[in-house]
Design a protein around this nucleic acid. Structure first.
Lengths: 198, 198
DNA sequence: CAGTTCGTTCAGTAATTACTGAAAACACAG
DNA sequence: CTGTGTTTTCAGTAATTACTGAACGAACTG
């Protein structure tokens, strides 16, 4: 099976991009192919399309399964295994975020935590530990936020993204409201707070 | 120069992590070392600490410079080049976001755009193009948002992150306010809107 | 200008990673 | 159980990437 020209560019590009990411060219290509396909593909389809060995494809698919980026399914009356990607692109984003976190962030966090328990023996070590503490705090904040965001329905998430930095207007509004307990008519003070803020 | 034990774990870990990311072990280690250091280091310091060849370090530093992750500076009365990382961890996050985007996202976007201009020749191609359109839209939304967020001062960003998914409460509030032009006292209707929303 | 110190380049080599083909394992059908 | 179509494993090899040492070049010093 030949890949239509329009799709080929994309597949090859994804193959190269894969390398920048933790996966090899083959894995990138397989994923791109499945992403574009209008039906699930079996290993032979993929072998034919990409011109790579059967065993290579098998390994690639395994890796993609371990990333939960492809799904295995069966077609009635056919013994072969068919693969496809999730339809919803947001679903893909969520999965990627989770997996990358599991593989890259969590190990780092746990290493940081254990090093932060130790007692520094010198000014250098003390400074190093301080830096690690900063990094730890940063990662905690980012992942905490990511956890939170993961919980939102897609609708909401899109709404938030579109709002972008205009979200700060809402924050300003909130500040104004919450800084004035009971709303006792001290509006002017609140307006000042905003000005001095920047 | 020997790396204190407390820092060594971190440096080695970063070296390994580097590989998952687009950089090699050496580059990861150099970066970690500089990140932890309480003073700028020159190439020889780094060579000594990591036990790698001078030329390797030179190449690593060049790569880190191309990522804008380290800064070159000079110390009065010393001809050698000294390197350090930005102090502020948020600054680092911003730089990383920009660079990764430049290297990974932008090329993909431009490829997608050009492929989306073409006319599909078959149902398969049409479907493939449709998928690419979805992906394109997603990336545009994400990067647009990222651009927006980049503009915020760190203070604001932290505030937003801490708020996390509670941000939706603000959105609800905003909806309630904007859906009721002039605030003509139809509060009860607004409250209902929220309930049916989830 | 010769000598010194530093940084860069690059060809060669080491180390790692990717890929293949053959064999094994598996799953089912008759 | 045997045969067939399928996926997996793995040892060997190819390809790629990382690293080194030696040579070179640039910038300064006396």
């Amino acid at each position: 099976m030949d890949i239509p020209p329009l799709a080929r560019t994309f597949v090859l590009h994804f193959g190269e991009m894969g390398s920048r990411w933790g996966v090899n060219r083959t894995v990138g290509q397989i994923y791109a192919l499945l992403f574009l396909s209008n039906r699930p593909l079996n290993a032979e389809d993929i072998t034919g399309a990409l011109g790579l060995s059967r065993s290579n494809i098998s390994m690639g698919l395994k890796e993609l399964e371990s990333w939960r980026l492809v799904r295995l399914q069966h077609i009635p009356g056919d013994r072969r295994e068919y693969f496809s990607t999730p339809e919803d692109v947001w679903e893909i984003v969520r999965i990627l975020a989770e997996e990358r976190r599991k593989r890259e962030v969590d190990p780092t966090l746990s290493l940081l935590r254990s090093v932060l328990m130790e007692t520094p023996d010198s000014p250098e070590e003390r400074h190093a530990q301080e830096r690690m503490r900063e990094l730890h705090g940063l990662i905690e904040l980012l992942t905490g936020w990511a956890d939170d965001v993961q919980k939102l329905e897609t609708e909401r998430l899109v709404q938030l993204m579109k709002l972008g930095s205009r979200i700060t207007r809402l924050l300003d509004m909130k500040d104004r409201l919450t800084l004035l307990p009971g709303g006792k008519g001290r509006r002017r003070k609140a307006a000042n707070t905003e000005d001095s803020g920047e």
